[in-house]
């Protein structure tokens, strides 16, 4: 009996899709744990670094490094941290939307924009959307190493040092919890001065060796560590978002299969009923 052959094929194909999405969900769940660990491990360093740099910004240094000085803005730079792979829900697109909104507010003031894109998805998106791409890094993988990003970050720092750009922003996803990731845009340069009530009086560090050399090294290290930390955090976001997206896909596939199964059963039952009534009416005609 060849009832609803098309429906059965459809069900089989949805079932195999469901198997794939549920496997991807489990893979993402285990990777997320690792990515989260990586994020937690890097946090103390990034936090300490931020507090040291915050202290420097509050000090009254004998030497003002150019990373700390506000200047007239003619061109701005964005470092956009996206993922390398897709199938992670709206993670990338939400980030791009936030970035574009911020870029537009600069563009409205006739201020040019340079982009530094980390992750293949960012390069693909801004390649077609348009924008001046100054540097791009892709294939950072699941275990990013700081040496991979130094090149791209240096391009932007050099652009800041030689006056091509006057502000530098970092756009990336913030990991709130497994369900929530927030796109954030942070100002990296010039260093935003922290408002802290402590240490308001006039003071300065003793510098060894001299302030210029030391601050140069420290501030470069600071920017690199902030970018690195945001890449690691973005990695955790990616896995969490993928896990959620695949969970939804698996559930949707299940619903679809149930619906189709119902249609199929109805069709089969209708065919049986029809056949029965044909036999009965045939017998009645003979008798």
């Amino acid at each position: 009996m060849a009832v609803g052959k098309e429906i059965r094929t459809k069900i089989a194909s949805i079932q195999s899709t469901q198997k794939i999405t549920s496997a991807m969900e489990m893979v993402a769940a285990s990777k997320m744990r690792k990515a989260q660990d990586r994020m937690e491990v890097g946090k103390p360093y990034a936090r300490r670094m931020r507090s040291v740099v915050g202290h420097i910004a509050n000090a009254n240094p004998e030497y003002q490094h150019m990373y700390m000085l506000e200047r007239e803005v003619k061109r701005v730079g964005f470092i956009v941290v996206a993922t390398d792979r897709g199938l992670c829900g709206g993670l990338n697109i939400n980030l791009f939307k936030a970035t574009i909104a911020s870029m537009r507010s600069w563009a409205d003031q006739d201020i040019g924009i340079d982009l530094c894109l980390i992750g293949a998805k960012g390069a693909a998106f801004f390649g077609s959307y348009g924008g001046n791409i100054a540097a791009a890094t892709r294939d950072i993988g699941e275990e990013p190493v700081i040496s991979d990003i130094i090149g791209s970050v240096k391009t932007m720092l050099d652009a800041y040092s030689d006056g091509t750009i006057d502000k530098l922003f970092l756009a990336s996803n913030e990991f709130v919890n497994t369900m929530t990731q927030n796109p954030t845009i942070e100002q990296l340069l010039p260093l935003p001065a922290e408002d802290s009530s402590e240490m308001k009086h006039h003071w300065d560090y003793l510098y060894e060796p001299d302030a210029q050399e030391l601050l140069e090294g420290l501030l470069t290290r600071y920017i690199e560590s902030q970018v690195y930390q945001s890449i690691v955090e973005n990695g955790a976001c990616e896995q969490a978002a993928r896990m959620l997206a695949m969970k939804n896909a698996t559930e949707n596939a299940g619903e679809l299969i149930d619906d189709l199964q119902l249609v199929y059963n109805k069709a089969r039952q209708a065919a049986i009923t029809q056949e029965l009534s044909e036999i009965v009416s045939g017998a009645a005609a003979i008798g």
Binding site: W203, L206, E208, L214
Partner: peptide, 14 residues
């Protein structure tokens, strides 16, 4: 080499 104990002046070094 530097030794630092309580009351040291603010210092930054590599």
């Amino acid at each position: 080499e530097l030794g630092i104990s309580y009351g040291h002046a603010p210092l930054l070094t590599s």
